[in-house]
């Protein structure tokens, strides 16, 4: 297990290198540059600025310089926010996004699995149908509509929880709910289908034939098998929560990383785009590793490479 984890972490290095290379190349292929303005800067000033950021060097040289910086943990300066390093910006905004993402992830997992179990364990009942109806709503209402509705219907009407900014845990409530709506509904449907499918398998009948109680059949024999499908979704879910937080961060004026992800590209703020992309890529690599580890633990048929038994 430790060897497997170590091997996977080592494999992440080439993955991140490829991400860095492709992103770097794509950025330089984009038309326009970081200091293009409607009113062109005087050529001398432009040349000075470019020389300062080494943009006058050949692209290959700039690439090598960037990678060398990365190895030292230096993400470079931001072009758009002079005086601030990309590392500074990430240090300020990344924790906010992670907190928001984690809150939404926990919400989606708890509510989604809970609702899915409540529906699937009682398939065909009114309770089941009500939950299916709610999940349809959760899947089809876009986050900017739900976010606005929550601000209007809850925050403005009752004065609590706060509708913007990021100061205490209460500030996370509405944005996390908004962000979690879609994955909650999706996970609920996934769990429900999985529970119903597993409940019809032969080993469930074996358990009953042994005299196992109905509660234990459901919560031990069915649950663990049904969760396998949900864990598989965990990786894509995390990626979605992180990249999807842009809209929610806008609505609730949250100083997270999502907004940099979009504005940095339009600003051609090369180092900032690189930094944000690499952080996202690393997160996704880590979450996939986490999924595989959990999967190996839940399902003995998956033997992780490097495990001897």
């Amino acid at each position: 297990m430790i060897r497997y984890t170590a091997a996977r972490l080592l494999q992440a290095i080439p993955v991140l290198l490829v991400v860095a290379t492709v992103t770097f190349a794509l950025l330089r292929l984009l038309p326009g540059g970081p200091f293009d303005r409607e009113k062109a800067l005087p050529p001398v000033i432009l040349a000075n600025i470019e020389a300062r950021y080494h943009l006058d060097e050949p692209v290959a040289r700039q690439y090598a310089r960037y990678l060398a910086g990365l190895v030292r943990g230096d993400f470079g300066p931001s072009y758009k926010y002079p005086g601030r390093d990309v590392a500074d910006i990430l240090r300020d905004s990344f924790p906010v996004s992670i907190q928001l993402g984690a809150a939404a992830l926990v919400l989606a997992m708890l509510l989604g699995v809970g609702a899915g179990l409540a529906a699937g364990m009682r398939a065909g009942t009114l309770q089941d149908r009500a939950i299916i109806g709610l999940t349809l709503l959760g899947i089809s209402v876009p986050s900017f509509v739900l976010g606005a509705a929550l601000v209007l219907g809850v925050a403005l009407r009752f004065g609590w929880p706060p509708a913007g900014l990021w100061e205490s845990p209460a500030y996370a409530l509405l944005p996390a709910l908004t962000l979690a709506a879609f994955p909650t509904a999706y996970i609920a449907q996934l769990t429900r289908t999985s529970v119903i499918e597993v409940a019809g398998r032969d080993f469930v009948r074996t358990a009953r034939a042994k005299g196992v109680s109905e509660a234990r059949v459901r919560w031990v024999h069915v649950l663990r098998n049904a969760l396998l499908a949900v864990v598989t979704y965990f990786g894509p879910l995390l990626a979605m929560l992180l990249t999807g937080s842009f809209v929610v961060e806008q609505i609730f004026a949250i100083p997270g990383m999502g907004r940099f992800f979009v504005t940095a590209v339009t600003n051609r703020d090369y180092p900032l785009v690189m930094g944000v992309t690499l952080v996202y890529a690393a997160l996704i690599v880590l979450s996939n590793l986490a999924v595989d580890l959990v999967y190996g633990w839940l399902d003995p048929r998956i033997r992780l490479a490097g495990d001897e038994s």
Binding site: D202, F203, R205, T206, H221
Partner: peptide, 12 residues
């Protein structure tokens, strides 16, 4: 005892 030993035991 059931017919299908392949599926009659819980895999996990």
């Amino acid at each position: 005892v059931f017919q299908e030993p392949m599926t009659s035991l819980n895999p996990v």
